[in-house]
């Protein structure tokens, strides 16, 4: 359906914006390494199911893309364009996010099986993975416009999945409660950012926190 397609496209575009921003400016200023590491974890734990579950060639290619691009971005951030200044303000305690997601995945899953727990873990972790990045924005008080486009596209992906789930619930009778709940949590976390993005960036102002 259209929402899912738009969501996936938005997800893809977000990564391309980020890669393009880093490569062109040859800098990772203002980008949270911790958030990027969390995304590697999210993609690895959710998408390694491609080794034992086949959905479609589209699904497989997208999974491979997200796993490899996220690892590549972390590689660029650590080795190629290391930025100690940015690292110093990247102080969000992600061990709590990882630990919390792990505990929640043990409690909420569809089956108490390794693959299912990993899947649930990735959903919980993804819902909060942007926090170090938003925390960094809050500390610096402003961001490069491209960085805000990246965050917006990344947030739009999960937000667009919400009407997709409603659509699938109506048309297929399928409901994935975990994905829906974590998707809503994620969208709420983004809501503040969306609001500022809409009011400032889209109207041509710089991204500055009020």
């Amino acid at each position: 359906n259209i929402f899912r397609a738009a969501g996936d496209l938005s997800h893809l575009i977000s990564i391309l914006i980020l890669l393009n921003t880093i490569q062109k400016s040859r800098s990772i200023a203002g980008i949270s390494l911790k958030t990027q590491i969390l995304y590697v974890l999210v993609f690895l734990t959710r998408y390694l199911d491609l080794t034992y579950r086949y959905v479609s060639i589209y699904n497989t290619l997208m999974k491979l893309f997200f796993i490899s691009s996220s690892i590549y971005i972390v590689y660029l951030m650590i080795y190629k364009f290391k930025n100690t200044e940015t690292e110093q303000i990247d102080t969000f305690p992600i061990e709590y996010l990882i630990g919390g997601s792990f505990i929640l995945s043990l409690i909420f899953n569809y089956k108490f099986q390794f693959g299912e727990i990993l899947w649930s873990f990735s959903l919980w972790l993804e819902s909060v993975a942007i926090l170090p990045q938003l925390f960094m924005l809050q500390r610096t008080g402003e961001a490069r416009t491209l960085t805000t486009h990246y965050i917006f596209a990344l947030g739009a992906y999960r937000t667009l999945y919400i009407p997709n789930w409603i659509f699938r619930w109506i048309s297929e009778g399928r409901v994935d409660y975990l994905a829906i709940f974590t998707g809503i949590v994620q969208t709420i976390i983004y809501s503040d950012f969306f609001y500022i993005y809409y009011h400032r960036v889209l109207k041509g102002f710089k991204f500055e926190l009020p």
Binding site: S56, N59, K63, G173, R174, L178
Partner: peptide, 10 residues
């Protein structure tokens, strides 16, 4: 509502 959740999304 179907019980089986298929992980076919990204």
């Amino acid at each position: 509502i179907k019980n089986e959740v298929v992980h076919d999304e990204l």
